[in-house]
Design a protein around this nucleic acid. Structure first.
Lengths: 152, 152
DNA sequence: CCATAAATTGCGTATATACACCTATTCTTG
DNA sequence: CAAGAATAGGTGTATATACGCAATTTATGG
């Protein structure tokens, strides 16, 4: 009994301090709030920026393909596209293969992206500057590795 | 014109590849799904585990204090407490200072935590094993630094 | 050519996140 | 002690996330 209770206490302390999932989510919350604050004047959120960028880079793309690119659940992306479509930043139309939807950035979306990118850079520089370039590069590499491990 | 378009393209490519916010969120999604899959049989989610653990370690704690501990928005925590209370894993009662709420883990919550912790360890070992101990420790340190920078 | 499998997407449901605003309680001070 | 300040918490609203299931369309094997 005493042993089990002790193990529960020490394991809880270890989990609180070292859990990769918790610490990733914690950092995500903090960093997302920083980006959101800086991007606020554009009306675009930190979470929406990658979608706009990927749409811009892909030209015209299906929901599933875009979800793969963003390493995002397909149904999550579908929900996330809605406010962007409502704001006129993207269009969603039926593709030639009528099972698919073709996502494309509108000219308004491109205009907004032009305003977003300098602010993104500002936020990014605050983080990179605070971390230092070495830790920044190390962080990116480890996040990439974590994704590979988690999905393998 | 050509210059601006080029800058937009290259900046978009840079953002897609290096954005700290996006890469953190991406890794959070992937890692959370791994933990969720392993924890599934307990009925407790990866996001709920830290709340149970912090409640267990704190003994009895107010919403705001728990939110500080978890580096989580107070109102987010309030919403997250609801399903845990519904499942009977925690109790929420008015504190002596009647402005406050006292959060406490129930005996059922402790029993569930006993089942959760070994599975948490299993998930954690998959990630740590995949990353290697050096990269794991480095990742934790950089996430901690990122939180400090983002909140400063 | 048709029956069936595969591919693509949407929707129902539930939880996670956080900002703005509101209420209730306690503290502070004249 | 009463009025304003400070503190603790909840609610409305909007977006983010993802699992399971259903619907539609395309590809494929006999």
């Amino acid at each position: 009994m005493a042993k089990k209770a002790l193990s529960m206490l020490s394991k809880s302390q270890e989990a609180a301090a070292t859990c990769v999932c918790f610490n990733l989510r914690k950092a995500s919350r903090a960093v997302t709030q920083l980006y959101d604050g800086i991007l606020q004047e554009t009306g675009v959120r930190a979470t929406q920026t990658p979608i706009l960028i990927a749409s811009y880079l892909a030209g015209e793309v299906t929901v599933s393909h875009l979800a793969d690119t963003l390493v995002m659940d397909r149904t999550t992306l579908t929900r996330n596209l809605k406010p962007l479509e409502d704001q006129g930043l993207i269009t969603v139309k039926t593709g030639n293969d009528r099972r698919t939807k073709a996502i494309a950035l509108t000219s308004q979306g491109k205009a907004v992206l032009t305003r977003v990118l300098p602010l993104w850079e500002k936020a990014q520089k605050q983080i990179v500057g605070g971390l230092g370039n070495d830790r920044f590069k190390s962080l990116l590499a480890e996040l990439s590795a974590a994704v590979s491990v988690a999905r393998s």
